[in-house]
Nucleic acid binder design. Structure first.
Lengths: 344, 344
DNA sequence: CTGAAAGCGCTTACAG
DNA sequence: CTGAAAGCGCTTACAG
């Protein structure tokens, strides 16, 4: 008796019944085990047999069911990717870098855009466990508890943190070396004689914000300076532009501004110009990330390049290695940024 | 005898053995069927029984295996999302809109960034069939053959096309009404007396490019005009900026430019300024998409707003409806753009 | 190299 | 409402 599936019962043009491994084996005149070995590219199968099976696959239009395979073998060939704000071009570049590596390796990623909210992150991680992802690339939302990530990892879902890291920082992690980035910017500004250097910081509490501030402070200390100001700002062009006035109205305004990221820096660039200030001559301005737009803004924005695509690629590589060898020693990979001086 | 799984054999800290539905049933003192009904929120189960099962779920740390459920029920609660270029802020906004709807509905999406290449698209679609996604949101790469998409849909993978559509255009589709967008821009320019109106077009052949050009031509025709020029350009700020010179060097340069998208328009804005032209007074400039950056560029870029987040949300809604009812009549949803006049 | 059997963790009829 | 049995499409030992 033929099972009537829901899609067949309901469909106007019923989807053709799927060819299974059993039917494929019958078509090729071999056993299911043999077909399974061919599918997994085992060298145990005779070349002639392999060829015959491959012909049958093409002839019957067979499609491998990776979910069924996962149920038995435990490997889904899928991972989760959790990022905080995909509309920031930096994250988009990062995602493209990850996607390229996974595509080459034959893997596939579930995407979650958390908007930096822990509740969405938690829901998504739960779904990754239900879908049996083999691992997760996670940019932890601000406020994520290290203990919670520990629980999840202990339950058998490997996590590689990207860009941000929570807790004692001994797990797998890939990100830019924010401290070096800040040191490069401070060095550049100090050489040019700036002593009143301010930071337009993030308004979120996470390691990426913290490490930037610490890096800035340490570098300034080496030059006998302290930050002229630290102003938190939402990561939005409009908010940053609006912030410009209040900064420049001070009695003793900074002569140089380093911004948490380029989105903020570009907003600030625009805001300063609307006030009649010329970034690059009246006030030095340095962004963070070096997104594409830095090249074409007017004036062109100087920025600390963090190479998001490379970070994404390195993180994806690390996660695949970790899945293959869960016992390997955790790695913290910090990619060195470089300073790209343009007109500001 | 206890099965040793690979991860246990290999792991230093072995992942705790997963609680299965059978064990959960034993813990709660009911049958597996009953637990299954509770998991699927069936009303058939007595409230008291349901409560007991839920307590056991919490107590044992049970995690539902959606893949195993899919094998029997056919529903994976996962879809594929194929876009051409995630680093374009427009696609990022679109993705955020899709993600929000899926999150609310309890679904999850596999992401593919094709870079507008059909080979990557094909590989990804094949993986979606292997992973048994319930459907796909697809922005077809330039050059995608309608027949191929037809085959895939016929094999039982519902496809909702977004932003672009191939072939006879009778399948499910959600996108902006490019023609209306162009009409709004042309109307605006003609009222202001422009007669030499040019298009900086995409360099890719797809319906989104074609519909823009057709819309422009039709609108100009209604005003007794023809396009002053149609210049193809790669979707990159730098390429667009570089193109500016050759356009303005003409003997009879256009007085107004409409650009395929904002990335190109912003590059053009920059390129024109570097040449000493003032966008907005020397030459009118209108972008397409209305990405965030339009508000903060100097001068602020006028643009045709296509509301990517809303398109994404509508497309995700449509796909979920199509999965629930594969026999429903196909829908083509065109969202009306509006023109946002700023300084250019 | 190949084949028969068991099992991965669920859902689905079906009988009670 | 509940329980026993079969089955979704694979992989895994194991015997040959």
């Amino acid at each position: 008796m033929i099972q009537i599936r829901p899609s067949q019962a309901a469909g106007r043009r019923p989807a053709p019944r799927r060819v299974t491994l059993r039917e494929l084996a019958a078509h090729a005149g071999v056993s299911r085990s043999t077909v399974s070995l061919v599918l997994r590219e085992s060298p145990l199968v005779a070349a002639l047999t392999r060829a015959r099976v491959r012909e049958s696959m093409a002839a019957t239009g067979y499609v491998y069911d990776r979910g069924a395979a996962r149920l038995r073998s435990g490997v889904s060939q899928a991972i989760g990717l959790v990022i905080s704000e995909i509309t920031n071009p930096f994250y988009a570049e990062l995602t493209a870098g990850i996607d390229a590596v996974l595509d080459r390796a034959g893997w596939v990623a579930f995407l979650a855009n958390t908007g930096d909210r822990t509740d969405r992150q938690e829901r998504f991680l739960q779904r990754m466990r239900e879908q049996k992802a083999d691992g997760v690339l996670l940019c932890p939302a601000s406020g994520t508890e290290a203990a919670r990530l520990g629980e999840i990892a202990a339950s058998g879902l490997p996590i590689v943190q990207i860009l941000r890291r929570t807790g004692p920082m001994q797990g797998d992690y890939v990100g830019p070396d924010y401290r070096i980035g800040m040191a490069l910017a401070v060095e550049h500004l100090c050489v040019r004689g700036h002593v009143r250097i301010g930071l337009i910081a993030s308004d979120r509490r996470n390691s990426a914000s913290r490490e930037r501030l610490e890096g800035l402070t340490e570098s300034l200390t080496r030059h006998g300076l302290t930050p002229a100001l630290v102003a938190p700002c939402e990561s939005s062009r409009a908010k940053a532009a609006a912030l410009a006035a209040s900064l420049m109205d001070r009695t003793d305004p900074p002569t140089a501004l380093i911004c948490h990221n380029d989105v903020i820096a570009l907003g600030m660039l625009s805001g300063l110009q609307r006030l009649g200030r010329r970034p690059g001559s009246d006030v030095a301005l340095i962004g963070f990330d070096n997104i594409n737009e830095c090249c074409t803004s007017i004036p062109a924005l100087s920025s600390i390049a963090t190479q998001p695509a490379e970070i994404g690629a390195a993180a994806a590589d690390l996660l695949l290695r970790r899945i293959a060898d869960p016992t390997g020693a955790p790695e913290q990979i910090l990619l060195p940024p470089r300073l790209v001086i343009r007109e500001t």
